[in-house]
């Protein structure tokens, strides 16, 4: 774990085990920092949701909860931008081929909404070509007090 913080931004690099519930090792501090930097409750909800989905996907679908594999997380929080990079050690996937969960035939499927939620609630969601690393960004849209 590495922290590199200043008055302008907070940065942290963390390595998580591929275990259920490990996302909290990142999200607890992330949520605290979002509050410190004055992000709105609406934005905090969106970032929390996207982070949770990305971290769970990495441990569950990417690393398949393999104890030999880890999830690498980089967080950056400032007044106007939040950036997360979540990388797993799995084989990756083609994010363009994730089925649209809002289609009538998939609407009642219990799975497959994580990527869509990330895309809906963040400003930018971009996977690397291999599909085992995702960049999540949220730009502050509301005026600062």
């Amino acid at each position: 774990m590495a922290n590199n913080s200043s008055a302008e931004s907070w940065q942290r690099a963390t390595v998580l085990p591929s275990e259920r519930g490990s996302s909290r090792l990142v999200t607890d501090d992330l949520l605290e920092q979002l509050g410190i930097f004055g992000w709105s409750q609406e934005d905090i909800f969106a970032i929390h949701l996207a982070a949770e989905e990305a971290l769970v996907n990495a441990a569950m679908h990417g690393n398949r909860f393999d104890p030999a594999k880890q999830v690498h997380v980089e967080c950056q929080v400032s007044n106007d931008l939040v950036r997360l990079v979540v990388t797993d050690e799995g084989e990756g996937f083609d994010s363009a081929n994730v089925p649209d969960c809002t289609l009538a035939e998939r609407l009642e499927s219990p799975n497959g909404r994580g990527v869509m939620l990330m895309r809906s609630f963040m400003t930018r969601v971009e996977y690397n070509p291999k599909g085992n690393s995702v960049i999540l960004e949220k730009k502050r849209e509301t005026a600062q007090p």
């Binding site: 909800f45 989905e53 769970v56 009642e108 499927s109 219990p110 909404r113």
Partner: peptide
């Protein structure tokens, strides 16, 4: 309830079914 994830949505869908 302040927050729920997509995994929780899945349970609600199965419950509804």
């Amino acid at each position: 309830v302040e927050f729920l994830s997509s995994a929780a949505l899945g349970k609600l869908i199965t419950f509804d079914r």
